[in-house]
Design a protein around this nucleic acid. Structure first.
Lengths: 142, 142
DNA sequence: GTTTTGATCATCCTTTCGGGTGATTTGTAA
DNA sequence: TTACAAATCACCCGAAAGGATGATCAAAAC
């Protein structure tokens, strides 16, 4: 439900604006009978309108939409695992993760392994990617 | 010189396409005298053309501008190394990189090693991070 | 009070990574 | 022509990462 709305909102907007444009054009058409206008004028108006509409469409539909948080619970990652994931994403080695958390290397490895299985990945690089995609970790500063 | 061309290429393309559109419209205009066409047809053509042009403009010119390519040259990364870096950033293993590029594992490893030394990092995760920071690779989709 | 879960650590084993070195080939620049 | 950079591949070795399994302990859930 919610997801469907979210996914298709852009198309609703698209449809709405298309409709408005069409109505506007019809009004212009019938009100002024068009032929009184230079044909270039008419084309120019349409061109400018659609140009801006296209630019708007292009820029708005390609903005990042920020993944949602419900993912975290679904994946069942524990607090500790999220900590580890955070450190992983900072490019730390297993040993460094262990040191930062004051646990043994084995423990760090255990956490990391369970992270992999919960994220359904095979390598740490993939885990980091997935964590980024799902916004499980703090995004890199910009 | 080269840089100037590179930076302004978008505007050259812009100008070129604008010109072509204008010429095309003029041809349509004079060849068919337009009035033989439905006015809606004419408007529709212009609308569609400018719509797509606008979308193209919007998507291409408003993408994050990414610390640009001069970085790449400064770092001295070769074309091949950038390819490898790209694949690394996708979470592929050395073997997978080798397979994708149709080279041996040894070759892939060589490239990767030289990437590390040029980026001044010790691990692939760090290389990926640095590559992202410097926009040496394509940003994650969305 | 028993069960479950999370966190901790271990051991064994395999695969992957990364460093170092050297060699060949090809294209390009000096 | 020579020189150099880029790309290719090989071999060796040690370190790191990853998989599988099991164990202990404490807190929370039942």
């Amino acid at each position: 439900m919610k997801r469907l709305q979210k996914l298709n909102r852009i198309y609703w907007i698209y449809g709405g604006i298309m409709g408005l444009l069409m109505i506007a054009l019809q009004i212009i058409h019938y009100k002024t009978m068009v032929r009184d206008m230079e044909i270039e004028m008419y084309g120019g108006i349409i061109g400018v309108l659609f140009l801006f509409f296209g630019i708007w469409l292009g820029t708005s539909s390609f903005k990042k939409k920020s993944a949602d948080k419900y993912d975290r619970q679904k994946l069942g990652l524990s607090k500790r695992e999220l900590e580890v994931l955070e450190l992983l994403s900072q490019g730390l080695s297993n040993q460094e993760v262990a040191d930062k958390l004051f646990v043994s290397l084995n423990t760090a490895k255990t956490h990391i392994s369970s992270i992999y299985s919960k994220l359904n990945v095979k390598r740490r690089t993939q885990a980091i990617q997935k964590a980024r995609d799902m916004a499980l970790i703090h995004p890199p500063k910009e």
